[in-house]
């Protein structure tokens, strides 16, 4: 009986660890504090894409985004009024907020989190997933 229970636990653990695995890009932020509860798909914010165009300071100091996923309590009405993503996604600096599907592009049932963090990697023991450094 005991061993059966342990085996059960083990499988639950294994399936849990693997179920959070994904090939998403490092630093992608899934935003789903309100979206799915209001019938929209979760939002995916790609850090890699934005950091090619802006330094961290622009968003995290000038625009005031907190350095914590979910800490900013972003509401759609604020975006439409030109705050948060809406400061840039206004149809002038970047495409406007009427393009719902470009932001609300996530799979259902994900929590607000940042993808592939070092802690997540450690729990997954994804050794060997990383590419070799460039030899020059």
């Amino acid at each position: 009986m005991r061993t059966k229970l342990l085996a059960n636990l083990f499988f639950v653990l294994v399936s849990f660890l693997y179920s959070i695995e994904s090939n998403a890009e490092y630093g992608d932020v899934v935003l789903n504090t309100y979206a799915e509860a209001s019938g929209m798909k979760p939002v995916i914010f790609p850090h890699w894409f934005h950091r090619i165009r802006f330094t961290c300071k622009v968003c995290h100091s000038d625009l005031g985004f907190e350095l914590k996923a979910g800490a900013n309590k972003i509401k759609m009405i604020d975006i439409l009024e030109g705050q948060f993503c809406g400061e840039c996604h206004d149809g002038e600096t970047a495409w406007g907020s009427e393009r719902c599907d470009l932001c609300h592009s996530g799979n259902s049932e994900m929590n607000t989190h940042v993808e592939r963090s070092s802690l997540q990697n450690l729990l997954n023991t994804e050794i060997g997933r990383e590419p070799k450094a460039q030899v020059e």
Partner: peptide
């Protein structure tokens, strides 16, 4: 060792492949 070869927005596990906007994303 091929971290860059396989990633595609559509099958990265967090994007909805049926989303009409997915083809536009880089």
């Amino acid at each position: 060792i091929n971290a860059r070869s396989k990633k595609s927005i559509k099958d990265d596990g967090i994007h909805d492949a049926n989303n009409p906007g997915a083809v536009l994303l880089q």
